[in-house]
């Protein structure tokens, strides 16, 4: 556990790196299902990396209720601060 993913720039940098895309191509408004590299495998790796860095768990139910990276960022922020 190390990366402070509750900081927007670091979160976007991390997301771009984990999904093998350029950081310039994404923002908090980006719909994650529209990211070309988003697949069942990459989504699982991404969720497991978020857990590794922050201890936050995100389920498929969580993802089904949200659309964009900003909402994933918000989930991390809320759960990191004990609202899991």
């Amino acid at each position: 556990m190390s990366l402070p993913l509750t900081e927007i720039e670091i979160f976007l940098d991390f997301t771009a790196s984990e999904l093998s895309i350029s950081q310039n191509s994404i923002s908090l408004e980006t719909r994650f299902r529209d990211i070309p590299t988003w697949s069942s495998l990459n989504a699982l790796i991404y969720i497991s990396r978020i857990n590794e860095e922050t201890n936050v768990l995100i389920t498929s139910g969580d993802l089904s209720e949200i659309d964009n990276l900003g909402e994933i960022y918000q989930l991390i922020k809320e759960r990191k601060h004990g609202h899991n």
Binding site: L41, A43, L44, I47, L57, I58, T59, S60
Partner: peptide
């Protein structure tokens, strides 16, 4: 198989 949920339940 829902890989994300198996991960979440296992880790939790």
């Amino acid at each position: 198989l829902n890989g994300i949920d198996v991960f979440a339940y296992s880790v939790k």
